[in-house]
Design a protein around this nucleic acid. Structure first.
Lengths: 148, 148
DNA sequence: CAGTTATTATTAGCTCGCTAACTATCATTG
DNA sequence: CAATGATAGTTAGCGAGCTAATAATAACTG
């Protein structure tokens, strides 16, 4: 058989290339890829616990914990103990964490446009819809997709 | 803006989930994800130099070097110095490296079928073609795609 | 042919992803 | 209320990707 003819193989290859590419583009605003995935979630709503963030993002809790450690160091977020549960913490964006959003939006639109520059409008929509289907295979259907 | 509505974001999420999933499935045959990407290339043709493998796979040479170190340890490949160039090495599959192919094919077909179980035949073809377009954006058009 | 430049492999060190194992705390139940 | 079990965060350690820097060798050039 030809492994090259499978979607899985193609997806793996594209995945690593895309991640490496993102990392390079994010360096311009002083971010790492993992930090961004956490920021995406915090920009939706901050003040949540690490375990909740991890579940939403789809990462293991130690991964999120490590990324947050780096983000605290560079001053993007704060970690405060929960008042009524001494086990848990709440993660809040700092002013810098909020301010980062504008910078990232700029880069993000560029990255998206460059990636899809050779795609027609309908190809973009189809790719988005098929990738959503793959995402649903791994994460289940996103409830936020319906309303909101 | 909503980052969730971009292909880049979707691709990042799907990418990590897919890689994590592959890693789990490959554990059944005793392989790691990085080893597999090298094997894919060696199964096409072995006896090449590390730098050539890295270029074809689309990885940095230190990455390939590290992966090969692990593969040599577990006996999947051999590394021999080049006769006419003392800098370079040639990477050859061992018998075990060749034999691994059959095991991987089995797993691979399963993974592919499960991933695409909810996709129609035409959706599969379209997804493959659109992902190929993304790959070409990152790697350029593959010359092997034409003939062979 | 001596000196510079380019290439190959490698090492070191970083982020990111994981699992396993540990600690502290909460919740439950006897 | 004491013991057991569940939960939150963390630490340790692994593989995979990267860049930067080294060492050894080849190739080119004056």
């Amino acid at each position: 058989m030809k492994f090259e003819d499978t979607v899985s193989h193609l997806l793996s290859r594209v995945a690593t290339a895309h991640k490496a590419h993102l990392e390079k583009r994010l360096a311009a605003v002083g971010l790492h890829g993992g930090q961004l995935s956490v920021l995406f979630e915090l920009w939706r709503r901050d003040g949540r616990r690490q375990v909740d963030l991890a579940r939403e993002i789809g990462l293991a809790t130690p991964t999120v914990n490590k990324i947050l450690g780096g983000m605290i160091e560079v001053g993007l977020v704060d970690r405060t103990r929960l008042e009524d549960d001494a086990r848990a913490t709440r993660i809040y964006l700092t002013d810098e964490g909020h301010a980062m959003r504008a910078k990232v939006e700029e880069v993000w639109l560029e990255v998206e446009e460059e990636l899809l520059s050779e795609f027609t409008e309908s190809e973009r929509l189809i790719l988005f819809s098929l990738l959503t289907k793959v995402r649903n295979y791994y994460f289940g259907v996103d409830p936020d997709q319906v309303d909101d």
